[in-house]
Amino acid sequence: MPEKAPPKILVIDDTKELVLGLATLLKAQGYQVVAAYDALFGVSLAHKEKPDLIILDIGLPAGGGFYVLRNLKDSVQTLDIPVLVLTAQQETDLEAKVKQMGAAAYLHKPFAPESLLVQVKEILK
């Protein structure tokens, strides 16, 4: 019987150093990681790769994270992919807003790597 492929995670964030850190962290836990650095590429990669989880930054170039989230939740192909939102923005009601838009979880930057791993495991359970 073929071994089950590890869960695939798409990271969409324009801070390349953070994507590198996230990819290293997640790969060390056995996940597959693919990355996009802007909103448009992120949406197209989500449709192409069909990941098990998307880690999405809100402050993205070429459309912004809200555009990506709206687009993912409007498409039947990507509707069921859980999205973990990361943001450095300060608005008090941001968490409620992204959860209302369909995000599965929310973390504020700079986050503890352990908290991210807990959230990822929880979502992929």
Partner: peptide, 10 residues
Amino acid sequence: KNPLASIKIN
């Protein structure tokens, strides 16, 4: 915050 998050995770 973005650079700090990057430094922290790396």
